[in-house]
Amino acid sequence: VQAALGWVVRETATNVLRHGDPRHCWIRLARTRDAVVLEVENDGAGATRPLGSADGDDGGGGSGLAGLRVRLGALGGSLTAGAVGDDLFRVTATVPLTARPDTNGHLAPPPEPSAAPSVLPEER
């Protein structure tokens, strides 16, 4: 969760500086019972979306907001981006706390609460 949200902060901060001229940028982090929610908002309308793209989707697979959607999706999370009113632009990333990627980067199900602990062969 921490690494994924770190990517969101880096990408959105880069976009704020690269694509606009805001006076303020706010970064909010909140933990709910089941997820971590990160919001990045700025008052430079359109500042966090690549030029020519209405929703901030740059079509790339490893960078930009589209790349963040892929990274967060692999953890069962989501990313939304868009205008809020006339002068604000907001990116919201949500990652469930139960997200556990397996060794192949796919989302692994959380352990069952009643499941017995696993025993490694050398512990037997």
Rank of each mutant, 00 (worst) to 15 (best):
G64Q: 01
D58R: 01
P50L: 13
L107W: 01
R90I: 10
R33L: 12
N15P: 06
V37F: 02
V70Y: 08
V16T: 14
R18V: 13
L65V: 11
A99P: 05
A74S: 14
A66D: 14
P109S: 01
G52H: 05
A115D: 09
A83C: 08
S118C: 10
S53R: 11
G56I: 07
L17V: 13
A83Y: 06
E112M: 12
T12L: 07
L17D: 08
H106L: 15
D58E: 14
L120R: 15
A83Q: 10
A81L: 15
A116I: 06
D87C: 15
L51C: 08
G67C: 04
T32W: 00
S53E: 13
H24P: 08
G52Q: 07
R100P: 07
G56R: 04
L72R: 04
E11Y: 02
G20V: 07
R28A: 15
V91E: 07
P22F: 00
L88Q: 12
L75N: 07
V40A: 01
A30P: 00
V37K: 05
P113M: 02
T80H: 09
P50W: 11
P117Y: 03
G52A: 10
T32N: 02
C25P: 05
T12A: 11
V95T: 08
H19M: 05
A93M: 03
L5R: 00
T80A: 11
W26R: 03
C25D: 03
P111H: 05
G76W: 03
T32D: 02
E122Q: 13
T48N: 13
A74V: 09
A13S: 09
T94C: 06
R23S: 08
A4L: 00
E112I: 11
R10F: 04
G59V: 09
V8H: 01
A13W: 01
A35L: 02
S114L: 10
E123C: 10
E122S: 10
G77Y: 08
H19S: 04
H106C: 12
S118N: 07
P96K: 04
G20Y: 01
S78W: 04
G44D: 00
A116G: 06
N104W: 11
D86V: 12
S78F: 01
L72E: 04
G62S: 10
E122Y: 14
V40G: 05
T14Q: 02
R33D: 15
T12D: 05
G52F: 01
A4S: 07
I27W: 04
D34T: 13
A99G: 04
R49W: 06
V91N: 07
A115H: 00
P121Q: 05
D34W: 00
S78K: 06
G6T: 14
D43I: 11
F89G: 14
A54H: 06
V84Q: 13
A47V: 09
E112F: 10
A93W: 05
R23W: 09
L38D: 00
A4N: 04
G52N: 08
G76Y: 12
A66P: 13
V1A: 12
P121W: 03
L75S: 06
G59T: 03
V119I: 14
A4D: 04
